[in-house]
Design a protein around this nucleic acid. Structure first.
Lengths: 214, 214, 214, 214
DNA sequence: TATGAATGAGTATTCATTCAT
DNA sequence: CATGAATGAATACTCATTCAT
């Protein structure tokens, strides 16, 4: 577990304003929320697992929901950087001459992200149906911005004649579905399974499916 | 709401062993579980919404979880019929000469299923991470059987030279990802939105992406 | 179990006003009350064990406590007969010339009674601390009458110079303690254990302990 | 009530780890369990009587049964000391030259114990039929050890030729029955009644009844 | 900062009892 | 006579949160 949540760990170590107990609380809560869900996890359990008094949790997080947000929000903020700034610039700087290469890079990048943050992503996906704040936060921090960047990128490759001239949102959806479908299968069946051949076939499939019409 | 859960309604009306109160309980519980999640819904709320004494719930369903399963299990059982028996036979009877037509039929069929059972499907997806029984039930009732039928169908079209000769599971994954990606976008953005053009593009994309290699 | 509660069985068969279901209820209730206690036994359990609808219990017994009394009261009534009428007369008719013989007969008689009615006696002893009615019933039906008869008997043997001239209540207490202590040990350790030698020693002990002072 | 449960009071005051509220809970529970029985006493009632929130009970005692054991177990542990260590040594140190004196001391000692712990003893006797744990605890803490000590003592007096050469267990049973029969009568009729004459007669009866055969 | 005792509202579940069929 | 669905009060127990230390 420790090796997985590197981003959480990172956040915990970087942030000097956090007490030791606070760190323990966040780690314990992440583990439990991922496993049993937010509603089914009691603050008592978290306190026990963190080796901390129950009151200590509420000294740092006004409510249980606060604790949830303290875990999930930083993840969303940190998701932005890599995607938007680094990757987009790379593309525009012609690091990726072909759409194909860009897709491959995206897969690798998201793969790494998932490997490091599986639990927090899991919590996010499990809880989003029940917490409007999460949805709003997601839309605010990620939603539009990211979609817009991707659209720019797709239009970039379309203008180079590398991919079909469908609406960029459609292309985005088709591409994202394939990638996320791959991740879903992978993490449901076996998170450690890593089939390069499968990725190659997916990219080939996307390339063919999205090839410009003659 | 009433118009949506036709399968549930059907089940409620067909089953003579159900009391009137029991029907009301199932309807109320479905609504609440979908909205707030299983763990965050109290039996008290359900009883109130159903216009029933709290004790009445427990006369019919030994535990709250029992109630959940009574809602979700029939859905899974009833999902089998349409998919496996009808559709498979149609394919083999050459009702669908081309893979393309089969995919289109599948989309329509699942679309109708979703339209009718949105809430129960929603409950199922939301709760599956927290209830191993649900997963097991799903695997037992649907999992392997359905996958195997689809593989047969895919191999059928492969042998006719209509689609590329990748492993059938890979083809299945790519196709399913696209379709589910479409549904996901649709139901997140607006369940009533129905873009035939979008579907056409998806099918075209699949056709191109899965075309046999020359 | 059936062989034990002969008195209950007898009552069940003799009483024509009882329905079959009623008989089943009484048997089931006796079993459960003896095992788990009155307060910890639910009418639901009794109904299930009796193979009867829960409502049926309340058709015959207005309340759960009514059911308890229906089991315990007849036992008390039937306890009277043997002790008072038969045994007392036997003594006065000089059937038992010596106190010793009378004690031996009493032990045998109570032994048989216990063997036949263990469960109902058990219920009675377990519940008497919590139900004033039981106590009152006991005092009314048994208490004074029985004590008085025994006192007469004791005075009879005292007047014959067979036993010491202590107050009759004291003699009664000492004798009864020994007998009940024997039964208690026996039923706690092993109800089937039957040690004639032990009984002989007890009677010898009583004889010596209660011998007239020289 | 306060004056009676001295052993409980003692325990409550000695144990610094107990909260004030905890003490109140134990006192209230003891009172109610003795009066109405364990199963018929609700935690709600206990909380009210103790002037405490219901939740407070469960912070200290995981279950209602836990609370019962917390009351009864210390009594059993504390019963050991007086009986085994003190009394046995006294006998062997010839403090009691005659069996008669030993019996008299035992009666006095148990009398005091009962006077101080009537309620807890009452709870114990009332609940033992329904809680196997109580029985096991009793056997483990008291049962064999105490019986064995008594047997040693009895054999000690037998070897001095003071009492009859019956099996020690038989002598023990006869003696204990008489003493317990006395206590039972006393506490049923009037716990404050204290008849020295009655005790004298009982001891005399035991002496005669257990005198060595000539 | 951290504790952990205390709380009262809330939880799922059980109960004895009623009543229409 | 018998049923079993229905009830609402009660049950043991849990919860997130507060607060004095």
């Amino acid at each position: 577990m420790t090796e997985e949540n590197n981003l959480l760990e990172e956040m915990l170590q970087e942030d000097d304003s956090l007490t030791d107990k606070q760190r323990k609380i966040l780690v314990a809560a992440t583990e439990m929320f991922a496993e049993k869900g937010f509603a089914a996890t009691s603050t008592n359990e978290i306190a026990k697992k963190a080796g901390v008094a129950e009151g200590t949790i509420f000294r740092h997080y006004k409510t249980k929901k606060d604790l949830l947000l303290s875990i999930v929000t930083p993840m969303m903020v940190k998701m932005l950087g890599p995607i938007i700034i680094k990757d987009l610039n790379k593309v525009l700087d012609e690091d990726f001459e072909h759409f194909e290469e860009f897709v491959r890079a995206m897969i690798k990048n998201r793969q790494e992200f998932l490997d490091k943050n599986l639990k927090v992503v899991q919590i996010f996906l499990q809880e989003i149906p029940f917490h409007p704040e999460l949805r709003e936060q997601f839309i605010e921090h990620i939603g539009m911005k990211v979609v817009n960047r991707f659209i720019q990128i797709i239009e970039h490759y379309q203008s180079k004649g590398q991919i079909v001239n469908l609406p960029a949102t459609t292309v985005l959806r088709l591409t994202a579905s394939s990638i996320m479908g791959y991740f879903a299968t992978k993490y449901i069946i076996d998170p450690k399974w890593n089939d390069d051949e499968e990725i190659n076939q997916m990219i080939h499939f996307l390339k063919k499916g999205l090839a410009p019409e003659e």
